[in-house]
Design a binder for these strands. Sequence first.
DNA 1: GCAGTGATCATA
DNA 2: ATGATCACTGCC
Length: 191
Amino acid sequence: MTAPKSVWLGPDFFRRDAKVVARALLGKALVTSHGKTVSSHTITETEAYVGPHDLASHSARGRTNRNAPMFGPPGTLYIYRIYGLHWMLNVVTGEVGYPAAVLIRSVEAITGPGRLTRGLGITDRLNGQMASRQAGLGFADRGNRIASRRILRTARIGVAYAGDIWAAKEYRFVLLPDAVLRVPRAKAAKG
DNA sequence: GCAGTGATCATA
DNA sequence: ATGATCACTGCC
């Protein structure tokens, strides 16, 4: 049996609803290259920011200098700074001109969107570029399948300001480790 | 629990 | 020009 070949994910993969892309990215590889070394990390947590009507999305208040990459073609990188400290890595989804994106929140062994970018050396030097091998940051399908029961779906983190409706949308997708599925289900909570 | 941190955006 | 906000993290 030969190992499945890794397939680079291009605009066709990202030209879909942000929720679909966010879920589909779980188990895919985030491939980064710095100098000669190439690193590949399994994506384990994502969030969808689904469009201009999404009050939790930067695109909810129209186009600005910061969010301009969100209006670019699918597969464009949108990297912005938050709290003056941390870079957030997003990839643009949907048709060109439609401002939606997926936030990459965690990869295997690196949890938290700010730690992820710090750990992989990602800064805004790639903001607005197309995710690709040439850019040194892209996404790849390794040919593995992710069982749906390994996917946990929850509300997004840190978006209470968007109001109850949008804060409650379950647009966060988490890939559970295999080990979690082996733990016997807890008995009904007491009290 | 909450301070750090500074670009960004709205308001003027 | 000024001030509030922030898709977070680390330390109390």
